[in-house]
Design a binder for these strands. Structure first.
Lengths: 336, 336
DNA sequence: CTGAAAGCGCTTACAG
DNA sequence: CTGAAAGCGCTTACAG
């Protein structure tokens, strides 16, 4: 790349350096079985020493199964949302590392993909997703982001995320809680609510319908939902939002309304997207990179004819400063 | 891709079909000079007939100048913003079509790129951008998104966009106007304001400082800025926002405040991003695809040693239903 | 103006 | 377990 390393180090250079053939280097590069451990070590050493970076174009060109993977987004799902942007870039990187081609595929009017790749990643899964029977019939391997029976799919453990958020708030003493969702159109938010309600219920807390707000999965939506609730007299002490964006919107609304976060209102988000959650928001972390990684792994299984599987990835509550123990007395203006 | 065209049609197939050699096909494919017009026509025909789609990996691998282009984003500029996401995908597509490699490069603590590609695209230009002298010293060709003297750069005609927005509002009879910017940290918004003020001034309208709001370049920021202004008694009849997001935030704030858009408030945005501007927002359209296209074209000039140039792309006001003629009487509750 | 041929960096049967 | 060799689809000097 830069002037110093202007000369590209190739697999040949590594091979020469390690005293093996380029085929062997290729084998260790791709983690193929049947390479002597000692040889492998030497090759790995040489790769590191020489700063070898495989040429993606050459890999793509060589792979026998000239496979391209398509990413398809369900109709109406926001391509412009941070989560999608991040998933897209992680997916592209994973595919690149696997030597697979990547392309985004568009939608027909009926919401089905307008093109078929050799394998597809389906974003924005919903119940009775029409893409599932369609691709099945076309015999195109695919992996779904979300849950579905009998197909390869990968998803964060949304239910557990909801549980962790609930446990955290309950443990802090909160019982008067509000939820902000995106309108209940996606599987993920539904599961998050499910886990959340489950734990609330176990503590005898009931989430009435009017305590489930629609934040449209945007910061503005979260703001408006929260503000409307506050102006209608909502006296909740805690909020669980199904995305970081909605959570920061809720915080802004609370603050504009004269509340202090976390002093008089605790807020928990979901996703832990850098640049949104920042170093302030308590949120349920899911790894978008892992999601992409396993999507590709499952897809490769599918492509090689291995039976489909389902991968549920763990999530982890990250406690920052948007949540605090419920205050026993009402907040006053003289509080710190 | 799909089952029917499972067999990839290569440059060889086209060559055979057109009765020429693959080298010739390559030449017309890349628009190289010195191909007989008749031959070229035949090749083009064959390509169309066979549905030829060049293999990007093979092109990348073949290009003698094994060139990779890096995209670098100025520190603090929102990678998560729709505009960036769209520019990124257009840039990647343009680069692909030119057979160039693409990669995003990260930032050092000091805001400089953490790696050097063979050519760089600089996003989020600001005055006295430290990346300019840095790359110049390193002798790395680059193109800037924005304005700067003596370097290759491409930008939308932000000043003219501001002018068009102003002309539109003035023509509709508005004189009591507010601006929502992103905090005046970027060149673009500054120029938009400049053009806007210029035309306002020509009509004897002065934009006081307190009429320039900070919307942080987000819908939530636009909402809060507008709402705060309205609650402070702002009686503007028109708003010009430097981005579509801030504009829709302003509309939401106005509506939450009981105003009707465009009946009692006209709002103009900037960008015309599908899915944000929708079919409602009057906005100044800039073509992100053109921006990316010319960025790549300029970069190719740079790479081949051609003197740097500056490309300013036209913008166009798109009138939809968020703006209307100023009502002569005050709005009443019984209006339609 | 056009063709034949080498080469880009990698992967993968095929031998051994 | 490893090497030698062919091949992926394209571009580009080099001849003519």
């Amino acid at each position: 790349m830069n002037e110093g390393q202007n000369v590209r180090v190739t697999i040949q250079d590594v091979a020469t350096n390690a005293g093996v053939s380029s085929g062997t280097v290729s084998r260790v590069l791709n983690n193929r079985p049947g390479v002597n451990a000692y040889t492998k070590g030497r090759v790995l050493d040489s790769m590191k020493r020489l700063g070898y970076r495989p040429d993606q174009a050459a890999r793509e060109l060589s792979f026998a199964r000239n496979t391209t993977i398509g990413l398809h987004v369900a109709y109406g799902v926001g391509r412009l949302q941070p989560f999608f942007a991040l998933f897209l870039s992680h997916l592209a990187a994973e595919l690149r590392d696997s030597g697979l081609r990547f392309e985004e595929v568009g939608s027909l009017k009926n919401g089905l993909p307008d093109r078929l790749a050799d394998g597809m990643v389906l974003f924005g899964a919903h119940d009775a997703d029409p893409r599932i029977p369609y691709l099945r019939e076309k015999k195109i391997p695919f992996v779904l982001l979300g849950h579905a029976d009998g197909v390869s799919c990968v998803a964060a453990d949304d239910i557990d995320g909801g549980r962790q958020a609930a446990d955290h708030l309950i443990q802090l003493g909160h019982r008067n809680i509000v939820c902000i969702l995106g309108g209940l159109h996606s599987q993920g938010e539904f599961d998050r609510l499910k886990g959340f309600q489950e734990r609330l219920g176990a503590s005898g807390i009931v989430l009435d319908e009017e305590r489930i707000l629609d934040g449209e999965f945007t910061s503005l939506g979260g703001y408006r939902a929260m503000r409307r609730a506050l102006e209608a007299g909502c006296d909740a002490t805690a909020v669980f939002a199904a995305s970081d964006e909605m959570a920061i919107g809720a915080i802004a609304a609370a603050e504009d309304h004269g509340l202090r976060v976390p002093l008089s209102l605790s807020v928990v988000g979901f996703d832990d997207i850098e640049g949104i959650a920042g170093n302030r928001l308590t949120t349920v972390r899911q790894s978008i990179g892992d999601l992409a990684h396993h999507a590709v792994a499952l897809l490769q299984d599918e492509l090689s004819g291995t039976p489909s599987g389902k991968k549920v990835l763990p999530v982890q509550l990250v406690v920052r400063t948007s949540t605090a123990r419920l205050r026993t007395s009402a907040p006053t203006a003289t509080d710190p």
